[in-house]
């Protein structure tokens, strides 16, 4: 179902969920949970948004049934650790590439995905100051390196 324009802010989290449906269903589940919660704050009034969110909720309930025996799903404290470890693993990979001067699409995507997953961490509560800094740095780095490569410049 097409994403209504009012819910544009969650499109990348939903795409990350799709990319992880096979690779890591726990990540996919919490990306969709974040999208659901954020979507309801953005707009759950207009009919097309409500319709979209009802479909997303259907998907979440199905995923929960399928993954129900996974501790990361039925114990959110375990889920929190799972998402945080995954986000930081992506961040460290991109940061190592950056420090080694290896700039490419994969590392840009890893920085950006890490920042999206740090957004997702907020479903478990307030982000730590460290994660807020990591998220800001990752998003800035992804944008900066992407623009450098687009303009044929070497990132510093």
């Amino acid at each position: 179902m097409a994403l209504p324009a009012q819910l544009k802010a969650i499109q990348h989290h939903l795409r990350t969920a799709q990319e992880h449906d096979k690779r890591d269903p726990v990540v996919a589940y919490y990306c969709r949970l974040y999208a659901m919660q954020t979507g309801m704050k953005l707009d759950s009034k207009t009919p097309e948004c409500r319709k979209f969110l009802v479909k997303l909720m259907d998907q979440l309930e199905t995923m929960k049934k399928e993954l129900g025996d996974n501790d990361s799903i039925n114990q959110e404290v375990v889920g929190n650790a799972h998402i945080e470890n995954y986000a930081l693993k992506m961040f460290l990979y991109a940061d190592n590439e950056d420090r080694a001067g290896r700039f490419h699409k994969n590392m840009i995507k890893s920085f950006y995905s890490a920042s999206l997953l740090l957004d997702v961490l907020s479903v478990f509560g307030e982000l730590s100051e460290e994660n807020i800094q990591h998220r800001k740095y990752a998003r800035w780095k992804a944008t900066y390196i992407h623009n450098c490569l687009k303009n044929g410049e070497t990132p510093q």
Binding site: K45, R50, V54, M57, E76
Partner: peptide, 27 residues
């Protein structure tokens, strides 16, 4: 129709909130 539409919308919003809380075992 306006008021009916509004009450349908808020009923569906409430239902979504309840389903979300249930999904997270918060009810």
């Amino acid at each position: 129709t306006g008021s009916v539409g509004t009450s349908v919308a808020s009923a569906e919003q409430d239902e979504l909130s309840q389903r979300l809380a249930k999904l997270r075992d918060q009810i």
